[in-house]
Each structure stands twice: as C-alpha cells, then as structure tokens.
Nucleic acid binder design. Structure first.
Length: 811
RNA sequence: GCCCGAGUGGCGGAACUGGUAUACGCGCACGACUUAAAAUCGUGUCUCUUAACGGGAUGUGGGUUCGAUUCCCACCUCGGGCACCA
C-alpha cells in the first residue's frame, strides 16, 4: 500500500460526506431515534480550543456507533454567540459585534469541519440570528404572561470612576479590572426570572433522569432544599415581628440574641428607635463593599454592631433579646435574619467577642463529664445535633424528635410555621449591554409596562455605530433615542423601549429544541418534530455548567412543559461531563499565558484522526489532563501501523489463528462496552494490543481485519473510510452495521489462577476453567516455588475466587 | 469559607464487584537494518539487596479484611463551581 497521507485522505472524505449528506438527520418514524448533544460553542476570537475537539469527538464516537446500531441520529451544531467577550472585542477593535460574530463563526465552522465530526450541518443555528432570537423573546413573553418575570431592585457592581456597571468577572479582588478603583454596590431595577418557583421540581425530578451522580449532587446542593421553620420574634414596644428562618429550631432555648443582615428592611423601618444610628450606618456602608464569599469566609474576624434601642422576645422562653447586625448574615437567604445561640460557631464567636449572653441547650449523646463541662462553660462550641436540656418540656428529646414538637407548640401560639427553604435565588435576567437579545417590552407613560405582541417579534437590535457602555449604568441601547422612543402597542401614546438585554444564558436555555426544527418561522419548533426527537438522549458538557446553564435550561423546559409546548418534563435524559484539557505546563490555556495549542496546527501536522484518537487516549474522559506534545506521536504511529496492516490481509477468507480470533472478538466487546461508559482511553489501548498481535501474525483474515476497522471507525473516521474503500467496498464504512462479537470465541478454556499464601502472591498455575478447591490443592503440593511455603504448615482454609485466585491461609 | 472532584513509575495513565499494582502509550537504554542518519523492527526499563531467593512501594497517618489503589476515619496538596465570563 502507498504511504499514509492524512491531508489528502481527510479532505477527500470530508467533502464526500458533505456531498452525500451522510449525517443528515431525518424525522423517520419507522426508526428509533437518538439525539446526541454537545454544548454549542461560544465563537470566541481565540478560535477553536483543543477542548472542543475532545467533547465533540466523544459524542461523535457515540453518534457514529448509534447510527451503526440502526438509530436515526441527530447530532447538531450551532453558535452561542451573544455575550460580553464579543462586545468587548468589537469595542476594542472598532468593529460591529455582528461582523465579529460572522468572522468568528466562519473560523469555527471551518475548524470544526476539519475535525471530521458527523454533524448535520443543515441544522446549524445561531442565537444572534433574529430568526432565532425571535423565539427567545417569545419565550420571555410567555414567562412574563405567567408571572415568572418581574422587576426588582438589585445591587450591581459599580465602578465609581468609570461610571459603569461591571460583570462579576470584571471585578478582581473587589476592584475594577480596568482602573483598579474599588467596586461599589449600586441598586438598580433588574428583570428577574422566578426560577425559585420551580426549585422543588428541579430538585425532585432529578430522580427521574440519568445524570452522573456528582452532577445531581451538585445541582441538589445548589438548589439547597432545607426543611425548617419561620419563627416570629416580637419587637418590644410594638406590635411588629421579625421573621427568622431556622433549620435548627431545637436550639431555640439557647437563643440569646438575634442578628439581621445589614440590608434588612427593619433597619430603615425602625431607624428612629435605633440610638446608635451613626455606628450602624457606617457598618452598612462597609459591608456593601464586600462580596458574599468574603462576608461568610470561615476563620475571618467576624464583626457585628448592636442596634441599640431595639430588642425582641424569644418566642419559646419569652426572654428579652438584643438585636445585632452582622455582615455574615445574608439578605437573600431565608428571611435575612437569624437567631443566635451558643450552638453556632459564628454566633458563639460574636458573643464572646462582644460579651453577649450565651446559653447552652443541646449536649452530645454519650458525652464525658469534662467534655460537657467545656461546653457548658462556653470553652467549646457544640454545633451538632444531640440531646436537649434547659428546654422545659422538651428536655431529653433528641434534636430530631424535638423539632416537629417545638414547631407545633409554637404554631399553636401563632409564632411559628413550617417552611421549606431553598438556597436557590431568582435569576437576574437583565444585562446593561448591547450584544444580547432586547427584552421585548415598552414602558408607556399611561399604561406602564406593556409587552410587545407576538407579531412584533423579533424586536431587532438597532444597527448603530455606538454600543459602548453609558456612564449612567444604563444599557448602551438607552442612548439610541430613535430606537428607544416608540409608541405604546396598547394606547399608541408615547412610550420608551426597555433598554436592558438578556443574558447569554437565555439563548442557550432552549437551543436543543430549535435543532429539531431550525427553519420553522411559525413556531419555535413543530410539535411533531419535538415529539420525535425530544428528550435529548445524551448531553455531554463541562462540569462548570452544572449549576447555571444546566439548571436554567431545565427550568425553561419545565415551564414550556407546563404550557404544553414540549412533550417531556425534562430536556435531557442523560448528562455526562468531560474534563478540561490544560496546557503542557498544567495551567489553563490562555492567550495571555501564551500556552495555547491550536488544533489547526495539529491537524495539519498529524491529521484529524490522530488528534481525535490522541484526545480520546490521553486519559480518563472526565478528568482534567495536560496536553503532552510528545504523546500524540504514539497515536500517529498506531494509525500508521493500522494502515500498513492492510498488506497482511489474507486472500483466504479464513485463517487458522485461534489466539487472534479470541483477541479480535474481545476487542469488539471491549470497545462496544467502553464507548457506552465513555472509557475511550481503554478502548484505544485494547485496539493497540490488537494491532500488536496482528503485526505478529503472518497474515490476518479479511473477516477479522474488517471487524477491527469497524470498531476503529468512530474514532478515526477518515483513515478507516480510506482503508475500507481500498478493500473494495463501494459503500461508506459509516453506513455499515456495528459488529457483534462471538461469545464462543471469547471464552478461554484454561484459567490462570494466582496462588497466594496468607495474602502474599507466591505463584500462578494454569488449570482447566472452573476447577475446585481440591484440584487446586493437589496441584500446588507439587508446584515448585509454591510448595516450599507450605512445608510444615497446616492449611486452615482456602479462599477461592473461581478462575482468578486462591489464597491459602495457614497457621 | 462552602459544594463537587482528583492524587499510582522519569511522564500520560491501567487495574472488572475488595483479588497478579504499574496494561497501553510516551520517554530512555541496548541491539537489528543502513556507508550514515531518519523511519521501522526487536529486547529491556518501579525500587532496595542483587546473579538468585527475597523485601518495600498507589499523597500522609490510622482502621476493617485471608487479601485494600479500591471500603471507613483524620490530615495534606491540586483542579472545577460559588449566581453579570461562557
């Protein structure tokens, strides 16, 4: 055979597949379907990352296998193109974001095509296409109609020098990334989506999907369901109450003061009663400058300030309690207030620091005298659950037993109610940027906020020169008066358009639905297509999207399900994750570090097949691994060896080689199973072992070689296609059926049994399969190297793992 | 700080459900082919004592077990996420 020329071969087959539309997905009700999805890329100016190749190849392998197994497969691709980096790039280079996006997607498309992925390119979508974002806006209107979108004052990051709002990413160490000025919080009206209304279902329905366990756990922790109670603390001298959420009502008898978050509304309400307001307002100002993470950090010197003049009544003990504020209490969790006691590290710390009264009411089960003394003398903080004491009628109950009893007792007095709380917060949905979907509402002087009607969609972004941020914190759109000033759709009077845009998460929350019917102008997708293709059968993506994108799109999907617009409760049946590819130095690849590996270079030098196989071989799929420029050589060698093996194909159909037959069928089995478990690295080592063995043989039967090439084909689609056609086949290897292994050929009749003496490996014997203890015992008595360990010893027992190992335990 | 992972030769890593630790690949050393080099092929390659018999080793320290890379406890280090990057 002639020399392996990857450039020629890959180009040839890529255009062949394109021309034949080999990977086009059709709604074919006679066939079972498979919908494989990867996260559509953000077309950044840096070009395709080798990490994209990794996740795309993995799903490509799965989709190619599914086609071979007889499925109708949808493997689509598109662009998640709205967002800050494009806008910033456009501003910096004085280009329009539309042109930047066009340029970048063109580069990405070309790069992806060179990777040989079996995408259906006829279904390509782009979130910045008005034909697409029309439907993103449409879904927003549906959310609005159903009271799931609302406006609320929320703090944003504000740089007082640049007079601009900042994304969290643009805040480094609490300072503005560009000018270094400390960032402040500024209140601004923001559009919110009420994802918390779906918190319960987002949590519970995880039971019904096949997500990796770590993904479920992380989503559950993020949603943060906790069962507890809201308690009412009467403010002394008023008829008003402060509401406090707690999951540890069992500690109520030790509650000696309460702490509000510095943002708590009661502060302003009772300002007149607070006698040290100067001190308090200073503390509030200071806490505005810290992030939540800083505020809660363990081991920091927690601080607080008393609200002098205010006190509340403990609903259980009826004792008077002072009121404090402290920045580690967060406004947006629970009720933004806690009761403080000796059973919480931070409260304990604060009380000791400022000399506040403490009381203990929980003790550990089976506690020693000294231990209990330490706790009761406040030398140690006991945070866990335990046994109640100092708690009147609830004494001697466990924490768990006490909680429902205390709740119902206080409920009777009208001072408590059971509530389920979630850590999850509503989704801040507005951005003050140009490059996003305009929010399709107007503000009318007479009618107030009026949504656009469906026929006015899409509301297109105005095509203007200036889209730089304004110095008022408003969106750049607000400066475009021609666009902003409009008529009210209801009364035809004067109105202003909403100038905030949607976050990048909007377009990506439903894109998998659009793929089922990407050109539909009447609906976001035809129900028939949705019925056929959804749910996505297998969605692979990064762990970094677990809590945001994955949760947001589950939320939108559930909403659409409630509207009877999609046929399934969940968008994704199965979710797996890939690990990142790091630079050769073990750091993240980034332009500024100058350690980026460009896939184009690798494809040119080694070929797309080598790149694909290398990325699958480099390590466990879900782990982060550093790029190793030397290792790809080994993979390239492997492909060349496969290429040269074609010279060994025998003219005879059958070649007598039992050992090779077994190995080939073992390989088919291993690759078939490993692909399902995403253990691509071990499938490739198995194929390498197989190649080593085929090289040793004088000739290889055509039948065996074809089995081998078929299992390799999803990994290295070009070279296998070339070999296949050179073997005289007229049809593409990628339309062949997935090979089946012959069970009879895999079974071996001799077992190699490891002999251990008292747990130490002392030798190995070959013995017929399924031999019994007595046969093994008889054999080892004569086995040199083993029997010497048994001299003068008495065998107590033999632990026998059939066909694998026997451990002889002696006295 | 909180949540989720990971830690095995010079390097990437393998090890089924608790059952030969280091498969496969890279690198390195030696050899074959060659006038020579590259490419290719072959052999070897955890470590200590070494010719052999043995002993030790899966981040650290304990535990369970006939047997632990695998399970349990404590600790150390590294990576991802923490809500306006995507």
């Amino acid at each position: 055979m002639d020399e392996y020329n990857h450039l020629k071969i890959e180009k040839k087959w890529q255009s062949f597949w394109d021309k034949k539309k080999l990977y086009k997905a059709k709604e074919n009700p006679k066939k079972k379907k498979f919908y494989g999805l990867i996260e559509f890329p953000y077309p950044s100016g840096d070009g395709l990352h080798v990490g994209h190749i990794k996740s795309n190849t993995a799903m490509d392998i799965i989709c190619r296998k599914r086609r071979a197994e007889g499925f109708e497969v949808l493997y689509p691709i598109g662009w998640d193109a709205f967002g800050l980096p494009t806008e910033n790039y456009a501003i910096k280079h004085k280009m329009h974001p539309i042109d930047v996006t066009k340029k970048n997607t063109d580069i990405f498309r070309k790069q992806l095509k060179a990777g040989g992925f079996s995408f259906d390119w006829d279904r390509e979508i782009n979130t910045t296409d008005p034909k697409y974002y029309k439907w993103t806006q449409w879904i927003f209107l549906k959310l609005l109609e159903n009271n799931l979108a609302y406006k609320k004052k929320m703090p944003i990051n504000w740089c007082p020098k640049d007079k601009t709002g900042l994304a969290n990413e643009e805040v480094v160490d609490g300072k503005c990334e560009r000018c270094g000025t400390p960032v402040e919080k500024k209140e601004k009206e923001q559009w919110m989506l009420a994802i918390t209304k779906y918190a319960d279902r987002l949590d519970k329905d995880l039971d019904d999907v096949d997500f990796l366990e770590k993904i479920k756990i992380q989503q559950r922790n993020w949603i943060g369901r906790s069962e507890g109670a809201n308690l009412k603390f009467k403010i002394e001298g008023t008829e008003e109450f402060i509401n406090i959420f707690t999951t540890r009502i069992d500690t109520i008898y030790s509650g000696t003061f309460i702490i509000l978050s510095p943002e708590h509304p009661a502060l302003l309400k009772f300002k007149s009663k607070i006698t040290n307001w100067n001190e308090v307002s200073e503390y509030i100002e200071k806490s505005k400058k810290e992030t939540d993470i800083e505020r809660m950090a363990e081991g920091k010197d927690w601080t607080g300030v008393p609200l002098k003049g205010l006190s509340v009544i403990n609903p259980a003990t009826s004792e008077k309690m002072p009121v404090w504020i402290a920045d580690f209490v967060l406004a947006h969790y629970g009720t933004g207030a806690v009761f403080a006691d000796a059973h919480d590290t931070r409260d304990f710390y604060l009380a000791k620091k400022y000399g506040l009264k403490l009381k203990v009411s929980i003790k550990p089960k089976n506690v020693s005298e000294e231990e209990l003394e330490k706790i009761t003398k406040f030398e140690k903080c006991f945070e866990e659950e335990g046994i109640l004491f100092n708690s009147d009628q609830f004494d001697d109950l466990t924490s768990e037993e006490a909680r429902p009893k205390i709740i119902s007792w206080l409920k009777g007095k009208g001072l408590a109610e059971s509530v389920t709380n979630f850590k999850l917060r509503d989704w801040i949905f507005s951005r003050q940027h140009y490059w996003g979907e305009p929010i399709p509402v107007v503000h009318c002087e007479k009618c107030g906020m009026v949504p656009l009607s469906e026929k006015d969609l899409p509301l297109k972004l105005p095509n203007v020169k200036n889209y730089e941020p304004t110095d008022t914190g408003e969106s750049p759109l607000s400066a475009i008066t021609k666009w902003v000033n409009t008529k009210c759709p209801k009364c035809k009077g004067k109105a202003r358009r909403e100038t905030d845009t949607m976050p990048n998460w909007a377009g990506s929350s439903w894109y998998y639905l659009r793929y089922t019917d990407p050109k539909n102008s009447k609906k976001f997708a035809d129900p028939k297509n949705l019925k056929y293709w959804t749910p996505v059968d297998w969605y692979n993506g990064g762990m970094e999207h677990t809590t945001l994108h994955l949760l947001y799109s589950r939320f939108w999907h559930k909403f659409l399900y409630d509207m009877k617009l999609v046929p399934t409760k969940e968008p994704y049946q199965k979710r797996t994750s890939h690990g990142m590819i790091l630079a050769p130095d073990g750091e993240k690849m980034s332009k500024s570090r100058g350690n980026v590996i460009n896939p184009d270079d690798i494809i040119k030098q080694f070929g797309a097949d080598s790149l694909r196989v290398y990325e699958m071989f480099m390590g466990p799929f879900d782990q982060a691994i550093a790029w190793n420029p030397d290792s790809i050589v080994g993979v390239r060698r492997f492909i060349e060896r496969v290429w040269r093996l074609t010279d060994k194909i025998s003219a005879k159909k059958q070649v007598e080689n039992k050992k090779l037959d077994t190995l080939i069928h073992q390989t088919v089995k291993k690759v078939t199973e490993d692909i399902e478990a995403m253990k691509f690295n071990t499938s490739i080592s198995q194929m390498m072992i197989c190649v080593n063995e085929m090289e040793k043989a004088a000739e290889v039967s055509k039948e065996n070689f074809e089995l081998f090439v078929k299992v390799l084909s999803p990994f290295a689609p070009h070279v296998t296609e070339e070999i296949w056609s050179k073997m005289g086949h007229k049809k593409s290897i990628h339309t062949e059926e997935w090979p089946k292994f012959d069970k009879a050929k895999i079974v071996e009749d001799i077992a190699k049994i490891i002999i251990q003496i008292n747990g130490k490996m002392r030798g190995m014997i070959e013995i017929p399969m399924n031999s019994q203890n007595t046969e093994i015992e008889a054999r080892i008595k004569d086995e040199k190297g083993i029997n010497k360990w048994l001299e003068g010893k008495k065998i107590i027992k033999i632990i026998h793992v059939p066909n694998r190992l026997a451990n002889i335990v002696t006295d």
